[in-house]
C-alpha cells in the first residue's frame, strides 16, 4: 500500500484516503488527547438522541418525575399512540415527497451545475451569483406568494404540488453546489473529450455523472435532511390527513396550551424518534460511499 503513495508512481491508481494504513508507530500522548477530545464531543452529540430515546420509552408521569434518567421500566405505549395517530401513513407520505424532491433536486442540480461549468451562455457568471443570492434569501416571509404559485397551478393538496415546492426550495443550493463541484474538476478531463468533438450529452453521461457520484451523495444528504423535517409548507399544501407528512403528524400530537397538565414530550419524542430513524439508517448505509472518496484524481 505504501508503494502506491510515493511521488514517482505514474500508474493511475485510486487515491487512498489520507494517511490510512500507515500506522505502525505506537501512539503518542498527543494522539491520546486528541482521541479523548473527539470522543468527548461524540458523547455530547450522541446524548440528545439517547435522551430522545429514553423519553419516548417513559410514560408522561415517569418523564416528569425523572427527566434525565433511564426509563425503568420502559414502555412502548407512546409508540403505540403515535402509530395509531396516523404516523404510519405520514411516514410514507414523507418518504414519497421528500424522496422525490431530493432525487429531482440532485438530477436537475447536476444538469444545471454542468451547464454552468461546461456550457457557455450569456450572463453566465451573473446568473450564478444571482442563484447564490437567491439561496441566501429566506422563504419565511415569502410564504403567501409561494403558496399562491402552487395554488394557481392547481397543485394544492397534491403530491406533485408539494414535491415541486420542495424542489423549488432546494434547487438553488443544488445547482450552486454542483456548479462549484464541476468547476473544480481538472479541465484536462473534459478537454480531451471536447477535442474529440464529443457532444455535450456524451460528456455529461460518460464523464461528468460518474465523476459527480460523491457530490450526488453529499447534495442528496443535505437536501434530504433539509426537507425531511420541513413543517410549514407541508402544513400549508397538504390538508388531507391521509396525505400529511411526518413532521405535521408529530406536531399535531402536541396538545394545545389549554391543557398544560398533559406533558406531551414523551409522545412527541416517540414520534420524533421514528422520524429520525430513516435519515439515521440512510446515514449508516451511505457512510461507506462518503468514506470511499472519489476517483477524480485519475490524473496526477
Amino acid at each position: 500500500m505504501t508503494a502506491l503513495l510515493t511521488p514517482d508512481t505514474a500508474v493511475e491508481e485510486p487515491i487512498q484516503p489520507h494517511g490510512r494504513g500507515r500506522r505502525r508507530r505506537p501512539w503518542s500522548p498527543t494522539r491520546w488527547v486528541v482521541v479523548a477530545v473527539c470522543a468527548a464531543i461524540a458523547v455530547s452529540t450522541i446524548y440528545p438522541f439517547v435522551f430522545m430515546a429514553f423519553t419516548s420509552l417513559k410514560t408522561s408521569r415517569d418523564y416528569v418525575d425523572n427527566k434525565l434518567g433511564l426509563p425503568i421500566p420502559p414502555t412502548f405505549e407512546n409508540f403505540v399512540t403515535a402509530l395509531t395517530g396516523n404516523l404510519g401513513v405520514s411516514f410514507v407520505n414523507s418518504v414519497i415527497t421528500v424522496g422525490a424532491g431530493t432525487i429531482l433536486t440532485v438530477i436537475l442540480g447536476c444538469m444545471g451545475g454542468f451547464a454552468f461549468a461546461f456550457l457557455r451562455f450569456p450572463f453566465r457568471a451573473g446568473l450564478l451569483r444571482l442563484i447564490m443570492i437567491i439561496m441566501v434569501l429566506p422563504v419565511t416571509v415569502l410564504i403567501p406568494p409561494i403558496f399562491k404559485v402552487i395554488l394557481d397551478l392547481g397543485l394544492v393538496n397534491t403530491y406533485p404540488g408539494l414535491i415541486l415546492l420542495y424542489v423549488g426550495l432546494s434547487i438553488p443550493a443544488g445547482v450552486y453546489m454542483m456548479a462549484t463541484f464541476f468547476m473544480a474538476v481538472p479541465k484536462e478531463l473534459v478537454e480531451s473529450a471536447r477535442i474529440d468533438g464529443a457532444s455535450p450529452f456524451r460528456v455529461f453521461f460518460n464523464i461528468a455523472v460518474p465523476l459527480a457520484r460523491p457530490a450526488f451523495i453529499t447534495l442528496g444528504t443535505f437536501t434530504f435532511l433539509g426537507l425531511w423535517n420541513e413543517l410549514l409548507f407541508a402544513l400549508l399544501i397538504m390538508s388531507s390527513p391521509e396525505q400529511r407528512t411526518l413532521p405535521v403528524a408529530i406536531t399535531l400530537l402536541r396538545q394545545s396550551v389549554q391543557n398544560p397538565t398533559l406533558v406531551q414530550d414523551a409522545i412527541i419524542s416517540a414520534g420524533l424518534l421514528m422520524s429520525a430513524a430513516l435519515p439515521f439508517l440512510l446515514f449508516v448505509l451511505f457512510n461507506r460511499q462518503i468514506t470511499q472518496g472519489m476517483v477524480a484524481g485519475a490524473l496526477k
Binding site: F147, K148, L232, L252, Q255
Partner: peptide, 21 residues
C-alpha cells in the same frame, strides 16, 4: 374536519396564505 396545530402564529401564517389566495 382538518386538524391544525394549536399555535396562533402558525394559524396566522396559514390564514395569510388563505386570505391572499
Amino acid at each position: 374536519r382538518i386538524a391544525q396545530p394549536a399555535d396562533p402564529a402558525t394559524i396566522h401564517q396559514l390564514m395569510q396564505a388563505a386570505a391572499q389566495s
